[in-house]
Structures are given as structure tokens and as C-alpha cells.
């Protein structure tokens, strides 16, 4: 596996406080260092106000760190001249699908990003078609966005990002406003983008079951990283996670309560583990 680093946080501090008058400000992100490598699938967990959304916004120069550095493909995000470069490497999908679709036709919206990058019309056409096929929305290319369901709109928004061909896609609670069906559609799409296109995914969520699908889980608390590891490792710390207002996936919890030695993340793994324990 290629270990090229796409996104690097170096001891990053950020605060929303304007003036502190000599006092220590409230750090929304409090000295975070982390690396996202090519092909990573990282879930970032944390309750409201833990700094996870701030972390996302720091990753593509929407916010600039007050202290420390954020490097995207080696480019410092505080370098204003290269903001566009940074954003073409790290794409971001937000929570509300309605508020990120610009155009009145699906394919024109997907074309918006590449158009801004000044790409040739024929190449844009190709990218738009590819992106819409990748999120399974190609049949809807000439529809109006407001006639789509929430999950479909969010997939259009994702297509709009992948048409820019970034190395990393950051999803900031992109399923929070969707119904279970829409959430599943979006999760499947993201998983497929990661597996098929090898795109690095940073997935910010507060749904444990979604986080369990990632390869690596980062738990944020008070602007700092509390845990960083595989889902199995992280979800062993039931008590600690509870104390910061988070749950573990129900299957994991059940297995732990039952005292099963197996490492369990999904319901089917849980079922297998229980069956094995009876043998």
C-alpha cells in the first residue's frame, strides 16, 4: 500500500474566540496532530462541540489554524495564493444537501467544480458522466435537484466533489439529515468510492454503526484526540466512550456484556460470535 500522506495536521490549535484579553482562549481544536494517508478510510467521532467539524473545516482552508500547520499534499493551508490548490485536493461535503447544490440541473451542478478549475469542456463532460455513474445517479443527470430525495441530493453533492478529482473527500455529518434509506445509500456510495477509486475518506459522524465501517476511528473530545485506532481497538473502551457522551455499536456492546472474547463490530459478526460461544 502506498503510504503517501495527503493530509497532515501538525500540532494545530484553533479558536472561534475573537478576543481573549490575555486569558487562555477556548480552543475548539486543541493541539491536534494527525496524518491521513492515501486510501485511508477514517471516521471521526465526537459529540456536539467536540471540535470534529472544526477539524473538517481546517482541512481545506475554510479555517486557518491559529497555531500549528495543516499541510495538504505538502501545501500549507495558510498560503492564500494556493487555497484553490488545497481545495481541489481535499473536497468537502456538508450536512444539508439543499444548501450545497448550486445549479438547477443535476449534471450542471456536478460540472460546477470542474468549471471553476478551468478544465476543458470535453474533459468536464467526461468527468461529470464518470462522477454521476460512480454515485449511481447517471439516470438522473437532467433532472432538477429539488425533485430528488435527500439521499439522492447528497449523492449529487458527492458527485460534484469527485468530479473535481480530489485525493481526499471530507464528509461533515453528511448523513445527519437523511432518513435511514438515504443514509444507507450515501454510506454504500462512500464505501464504493473508497474501495473502487482508492479515494481517501474522512467521515465525520456521530452514528457509531457508520463509524464501525471505517478502517480507522478517531474520537474527538474537547478539541483533542481521545482515541485513534481501528474500530475494534477504539470500541473496546466502552466506559471511557460513555463518559464523553458516546456509545459503542450495539453489537460490540452486546458481545462485551456477554463476555465473548471475539472482537465484534457488526450485527452479523455478533450473531456468529454468539453461535460460536454455544458450541
Amino acid at each position: 500500500m502506498d503510504t503517501e500522506v495527503i493530509l497532515q495536521f501538525k500540532d494545530v490549535y484553533f479558536t472561534y474566540d475573537e478576543e481573549t484579553q490575555g486569558e487562555e482562549p477556548h480552543w475548539a481544536v486543541n493541539g491536534v496532530s494527525l496524518e491521513i494517508k492515501k486510501g485511508d478510510f477514517v471516521a471521526v467521532l465526537g459529540h456536539n462541540g467536540s471540535g470534529k467539524s472544526t477539524l473538517a473545516k481546517l482541512s481545506n482552508a475554510i479555517l486557518i489554524p491559529d497555531k500549528g500547520q495543516v499541510l495538504v499534499e505538502g501545501i500549507d493551508t495558510s498560503d492564500e495564493e494556493r487555497t484553490m490548490d488545497v481545495r481541489s485536493h481535499v473536497g468537502m461535503v456538508f450536512q444539508n444537501p439543499d444548501n450545497q447544490i448550486v445549479a438547477t440541473i443535476v449534471e450542471e451542478d456536478v460540472a460546477f467544480g470542474p468549471e471553476n478549475l478551468g478544465i476543458e469542456p470535453a474533459e468536464i463532460r467526461r468527468r461529470v458522466d464518470d462522477a454521476l455513474k460512480a454515485v449511481d445517479m447517471y439516470d438522473y443527470r437532467d433532472k432538477e435537484p429539488h425533485k430528488l430525495s435527500g439521499g439522492q441530493k447528497q449523492r449529487v453533492a458527492i458527485a460534484g466533489i469527485i468530479a473535481m478529482q480530489p485525493d481526499c473527500i471530507v464528509l461533515d455529518e453528511s448523513t445527519a439529515m437523511l432518513d435511514p434509506k438515504g443514509r444507507r445509500e450515501v454510506m454504500d456510495t462512500i464505501r464504493r468510492l473508497h474501495d473502487d477509486l482508492g479515494m481517501a475518506v474522512v467521515y465525520i459522524t456521530h452514528y457509531m454503526d457508520e463509524a464501525a465501517l471505517a478502517d480507522r476511528v478517531i474520537v474527538m473530545e474537547k478539541g483533542d484526540i481521545l482515541f485513534d485506532g481501528t474500530p475494534l481497538e477504539v470500541f473496546q473502551n466502552v466506559e471511557k466512550l460513555r463518559s464523553v457522551g458516546l456509545d459503542v455499536p450495539q453489537s460490540t456492546e452486546l458481545a462485551l456484556e456477554l463476555g465473548l472474547s471475539d472482537k465484534v463490530l457488526t450485527p452479523s459478526e455478533c450473531a456468529d460470535a454468539i453461535i460460536r460461544s454455544f458450541k
Binding site: Q100, V102, A111, F112, G118, P121, I124, M164
Partner: peptide, 15 residues
């Protein structure tokens, strides 16, 4: 969202 998609006005924009 528009800024995230590199929107920076008409300059250098293609269709």
C-alpha cells in the same frame, strides 16, 4: 460549499 468547490468568480472559469 461554493468556496469548497473552488468558486472564485468568472476568472479562469470554463463551461
Amino acid at each position: 460549499a461554493m468556496e469548497c468547490r473552488c468558486y472564485h468568480g468568472a476568472e479562469g472559469r470554463t463551461r
